[in-house]
Computed example of a mutant assay.
Amino acid sequence: LSEHRDLAICYAMKQEMTRLFTLTDYEEALAGWTKWIQAGLESGIPALVKFARQKQKRIKGLAAHALYPINTGKLEGFNNKIEVLKRIGYGYRNMDYFFTLIRFHSLPKNYSSPKFP
């Protein structure tokens, strides 16, 4: 373990960061992030020190995640879906068809079409 000291520290810091994102109390999150950043700065690992400095500038936003646990995952996923559809629809001259294709693929998967007699 002594040969891989830096790796073990980084892994422990990653585990602690994951725990910090699950907190729901702002004060506890702020204290946890402050402690995490201090440990990162004192680690002596250049990449971790740089990362901790970047997080230090955004500590209030990181702690605010405890109150407002939002992310951009769905938005990024939808943007990716549009990019894939753009590649699929390459060569079509009708932009209305392209936007219809996006609307169709943005419907929920459990969407059932109306029953026709």
Rank of each mutant, 00 (worst) to 15 (best):
C10T: 04
F104W: 13
K81P: 15
L30C: 03
N94A: 13
R5T: 13
L7P: 04
R58Y: 03
S2R: 12
K109A: 05
E42P: 10
P46E: 03
I102T: 02
N94G: 10
A63D: 03
N80V: 07
H105C: 14
A31P: 01
Y92C: 01
E42D: 13
Q54S: 14
H4V: 08
H65G: 02
R19F: 00
G89K: 06
A47V: 07
I82M: 04
A39T: 11
S113Y: 07
L7H: 10
P114T: 10
L1D: 09
A31W: 04
A8Q: 07
Y11W: 13
F104I: 07
I88E: 01
A63N: 04
K60C: 02
W33G: 01
T34G: 12
F21T: 05
L107G: 06
T100R: 09
G77R: 02
T22S: 03
K35A: 09
S106R: 05
L75T: 12
P117W: 01
E27L: 10
W33P: 01
N79E: 08
A47I: 03
R87F: 08
G40Q: 01
E83Y: 01
G44D: 15
S106G: 12
P108K: 14
N71T: 11
S112D: 12
T34P: 07
K109P: 00
L23H: 05
R53T: 07
R53S: 04
G73Q: 11
E3I: 05
K109V: 09
E42S: 13
I102C: 05
I37H: 00
S2L: 15
A52W: 00
K74W: 09
G77C: 05
G32N: 02
V84M: 06
T72W: 06
W33M: 07
A8M: 15
R93G: 15
V49E: 01
K50D: 15
P114V: 08
Y97P: 01
R58S: 01
L107H: 08
A47K: 13
D96C: 03
A29E: 01
E27A: 12
I9T: 06
Y26W: 15
L85A: 09
P46Y: 14
L75S: 11
G40M: 03
K81Q: 14
G77E: 00
K14P: 07
D6E: 11
I9F: 08
L62W: 00
P114Y: 05
H4Q: 15
K35M: 09
G89P: 08
L1Y: 11
L107D: 02
Q15W: 14
L20C: 04
G73Y: 14
R53W: 00
L101R: 08
W36M: 01
K57L: 02
A63M: 02
V84Q: 02
P114A: 10
I70H: 04
I88F: 02
I45L: 10
K55H: 11
I9Q: 04
E16M: 09
Y90P: 11
H105P: 13
G77Y: 13
L67I: 09
K35V: 12
I70L: 13
A39N: 05
F21Q: 03
